[in-house]
Amino acid sequence: MKNRTSVLIIGGLVILALIGLVGSFTSNPAGFIQKIAIMALIGFAIFFLVRKFSNSGPQKKEQRAFLKAARQSKKRLQHKSGDSNTKSSLGPISPLKKNKTKRKSPAHLTVIEGKKGKKKNRASL
């Protein structure tokens, strides 16, 4: 019984909205199209603002970390493949390149000390 009343109420609201839209369109078509365009632009603006500020969670950080790792891997592969070709063709390395120190990003890994030497007491058959 409750489902039937809610369907009737929602159906009535939809019918009234359609009647209002048709009436507005027939009385002033240019104004109707302008209002629809303005509502669509405002909707898109709100959508993009919400999307921009809500995606600052872990997915975005993981994506940045993945892209950084991919760049480092690509650079390492290019360095290995181009290492034999560049040394023979370029000759001595300039002093500016020797003095540059390469900073590595810290690995956020820790070693967990545990009871590695202790064996489990298992029942033997």
Score class of each variant (00 low, 15 high):
M1S: 10
K2N: 13
S6H: 07
S6T: 15
S6C: 04
L8C: 06
I10S: 13
L13Q: 05
V14K: 02
I15R: 01
A17I: 09
L18R: 07
I19G: 04
L21D: 03
L21Q: 03
T26Y: 07
N28P: 02
P29C: 03
P29M: 00
A30P: 02
G31P: 02
I33A: 15
I33M: 15
Q34C: 03
Q34H: 09
Q34D: 14
I36N: 00
A37Y: 07
I38L: 10
M39F: 13
L41M: 08
L41V: 05
I42L: 12
G43S: 06
G43N: 01
G43V: 02
F44D: 00
F44A: 08
I46R: 00
F48C: 03
F48I: 12
L49R: 08
V50A: 13
V50M: 10
V50F: 10
V50R: 11
R51K: 07
R51Y: 09
S54M: 11
S56N: 14
S56K: 13
Q59K: 15
K60S: 11
K60H: 07
K61Y: 10
E62L: 14
A65I: 03
A65P: 01
A65Y: 08
F66Y: 14
F66E: 15
F66I: 12
L67Q: 11
L67A: 14
A69Q: 11
A70F: 15
R71M: 07
S73D: 09
S73Y: 06
K75I: 15
K75T: 14
K75A: 15
K75H: 10
K75V: 11
L77R: 14
Q78V: 06
Q78D: 09
K80N: 15
K80V: 07
K87F: 06
K87S: 05
S88W: 10
S89R: 14
L90W: 04
P92A: 04
S94P: 03
P95N: 06
L96M: 08
K98V: 13
K102A: 11
R103H: 07
R103W: 02
K104M: 09
S105E: 11
P106V: 02
P106Q: 06
P106W: 03
H108G: 08
L109C: 04
T110A: 13
T110I: 12
V111Q: 14
I112K: 14
E113D: 12
E113Q: 14
G117V: 09
G117K: 06
K118G: 01
K119D: 05
N121F: 04
L125P: 12
L125T: 06
